[in-house]
Design a protein around this nucleic acid. Structure first.
Length: 388
DNA sequence: TCTGGGGTCCTAGGACCC
DNA sequence: TCTGGGGTCCTAGGACCC
């Protein structure tokens, strides 16, 4: 399930077969789920992140260079590896990850990222491919593209899919035949690039050194609805501390902080209020960022409203070393070592080991996670036990 | 009762410059 | 009589991704 046990965001084959739907609210499917014996888990990104790190390390060990694209995907650059060696390498990757982590992994090898993503579809759906798709020749990817709906193409979302199918573009192959001018007009530069990539032209480059974030957000729906100012301020403080941590992690300063509060009775009557302020001279100090965020939240808060969700965001982010100081603001205070020390303690002894007083207990707004799986890889108490 | 969270890039349009 | 041409920067909104 999603955060807060709200919607089902991933379903396995068994669940799919009995009719459980992705992106449908849990409460609507609960009866079906319980009746059919489907097992449900709250999301546990600590666990998934730990498994992901291990797999990425395995892939990095066996390939020349890796770009971590998401928690469960990476690209590697196989330039210079001979044609004959590609498929064996693909199987070696897949087998090693299975052996070491017991996670089934698909491998797809081709000249462009978009074709790789197409190949992943095949690696997953077409059994005879055996988890490793090699699409290095035009006839290979054309064969596949004719069998894949245009909606499955990387870069074609809901809207583009609707426009494309209305024009009679139904398969990925149809999309490869779309003129560049038409593509450009319909979906701008991104779609033109998608068409080129599907034709084997390498347009989307590798990112071996991921650029730092330009925007850092922490936003959560509350486990229970909040009515009290103090509860809302506690959540906003905690979210501020989290974004400041992420900011320090990438060694940047932020020039602006914004806060939003979402209130209402239900989805239909949702109201969102947002405001932001500048941080003159930039900052990465949890205390300052929290102080500004609290001031904003104080202004946005309306007594009597029922609060569902809050968020804190940082924008105007630049590397610490290149930051242009504000001529009018006072110089950096003498406590510049405090944040690194807090980070070290929290990293060693666990998040929130030291915190701002205003963060308090976190219980008032914390997520609903009633069906949480154990954090097998990151919590001593959750280590599996063998009982003899 | 009840519907996630965190990002990126592109484009159009407005305000401004000389 | 008649009202240019070539730019930059910023922002909001829309599309996409996982």
């Amino acid at each position: 399930m999603s955060n807060n046990d709200g919607v089902c965001i991933a379903v396995n084959e068994f669940a799919k077969d009995v009719g459980v739907k992705k992106f449908e609210p849990y409460f609507k499917q609960r009866e079906l789920i319980e009746r059919t014996g489907v097992t449900v888990f709250s999301s546990n990104f600590t666990l998934y992140g730990a498994v992901s790190d291990r797999i990425m390390q395995t892939v990095a060990r066996l390939t020349p260079a890796i770009e971590i694209y998401s928690i469960d995907e990476c690209f590697t650059d196989l330039t210079g590896i001979s044609q004959d060696a590609l498929k064996p390498l693909g199987h070696q990757l897949r087998d090693t990850v299975w052996k070491e982590q017991r996670i089934p992994m698909g491998v797809s090898i081709s000249p462009t990222k978009t074709l790789c993503k197409l190949g992943q579809y095949a690696a997953k759906k077409i059994p005879k491919i055996n988890g490793v798709a090699v699409l290095t020749q035009a006839h290979q990817w054309e064969w596949l593209a004719k069998r894949v709906a245009v909606a499955e193409v990387w870069g074609v979302g809901r809207r583009l899919n609707a426009s494309l199918t209305a024009m009679g573009v139904e398969s990925a192959y149809d999309l490869t035949q779309l003129g560049k001018g038409v593509a450009r007009k319909l979906g701008g530069l991104p779609l033109e690039r998608t068409v080129r990539e599907l034709n084997g032209e390498h347009c989307i480059p590798f990112e071996f050194n991921p650029p730092s974030k330009q925007q850092i957000i922490c936003s959560r729906s509350f486990g229970t609805k909040l009515y009290q100012l103090n509860d809302v301020l506690e959540s906003v403080t905690t979210f501020s501390v989290r974004v400041a941590e992420k900011l320090r992690n990438q060694e940047s300063l932020a020039g602006r902080v914004s806060v939003w509060l979402v209130s209402g009775q239900d989805q239909r009557s949702r109201l969102s209020a947002e405001a932001s302020v500048n941080l003159p001279g930039g900052s990465d100090d949890s205390r300052l960022i929290a102080k500004e965020a609290i001031a904003i939240a104080n202004q946005l808060f309306k007594p009597g409203c029922r609060y569902l969700k809050a968020g804190v965001g940082l924008v105007d982010i630049r590397p610490r070393e290149f930051w242009q100081r504000d001529m009018l603001s006072s110089p950096v205070s003498g406590t510049k070592n405090l944040m690194p020390v807090m980070d070290q303690i929290n990293s060693k002894y666990g998040r929130h080991s030291v915190k701002l007083a205003r963060q308090a207990g976190a219980a008032s707004f914390s997520m609903k996670q009633e069906l949480l799986s154990p954090s097998y890889l990151t919590r001593w108490a959750d280590l599996p036990r063998i009982i003899c």
